[in-house]
Design a binder for these strands. Structure first.
Lengths: 155, 155
DNA sequence: AGTGAAATTCACTCTGT
DNA sequence: ACAGAGTGAATTTCACT
């Protein structure tokens, strides 16, 4: 008897990999890829969704179409621990901010942001971020090019 | 007369927003949300896909299920410009590396990575990254928690 | 471009193993 | 748990506006 989680096997992981590559696969196509009938493949996928392991089916959209061609990472330092919640609420509402991670090191948070140009990046930093009551410092790194940019695995 | 791209209008952007939230919407549901018939909504979505503005339909999968609960950002500094290609090829093949951005500043690249624990993160840094011929320096920041982690807008 | 209906394909259920 | 058949629902095409 093993202590590992046996509720899901190799086949379930293959199914997860497949729909990360292409979630528009039909049940029949998915079944062919993993060696199951469409009904069996579909039932396994349904269970993965129901149990929250497949969190969401989404579309990846081009930055050009969204007019957000400029990508940057911004480190943010906050003063007082008691104001973090207000900061995070504001972050949550801002569509330019794609990711917000609490990180180790000298800074408090690392943000991944997207805007249309440097003007709007400046507004984001100066008006929005520095405008938050307890943001003491920011440090910005502009992305010149991205060779990989698909974070499909999430908490 | 305007210089802007008029091939796509407000409706197309609404459709893109909708399927970023939920790509499993039926054409009928999508049509209801934007005020079109199912066939019209479906035809617009088909065009967005065909022209590459909707790049991909994917699933977001839980880190727990993938056994990649530990997230980190790693800055990498490369010596010689002529070896960047080999580095990027190796990056492309490594499933632990979710994002790789060429950034401004003192470092060459910023990587977003995921592994199961600190042991495997150590292997990634020591064996894989430092093992690349021209990696001179790395700097790692561990993610303690993520308050936003959905990069659905890509180049 | 959009609508509504027809034709086709797909998802999902059910039965049997 | 899976396969295969059957049913209801969805996508896709088409004629018309």
């Amino acid at each position: 008897m093993s202590i590992q989680n046996n509720e899901y096997d190799k086949l379930d992981h293959m199914i997860a990999e497949c729909i990360m590559q292409d979630a528009a696969l039909t049940s029949t196509q998915l079944g062919e890829k993993v060696g199951l009938s469409s009904s069996a493949a579909n039932e396994r996928l349904r269970r993965l969704k129901q149990n929250g392991h497949v969190k969401k089916i989404t579309a990846l959209v081009s930055a050009e179409f969204m007019d957000m061609g400029l990508c940057a990472f911004i480190f943010v330092t906050l003063d007082k621990a008691e104001h973090h919640k207000h900061f995070l609420d504001a972050i949550g509402r801002n569509k330019s901010i794609l990711e917000c991670h609490h990180v180790t090191g000298e800074h408090s948070y690392l943000l991944k942001v997207r805007c249309c140009n440097t003007k709007s990046l400046e507004r984001l930093i100066t008006d929005f971020l520095k405008g938050q009551c307890n943001v003491s410092k920011t440090m910005t790194q502009i992305v010149l090019s991205s060779h990989k940019d698909e974070s499909l695995i999430v908490d």
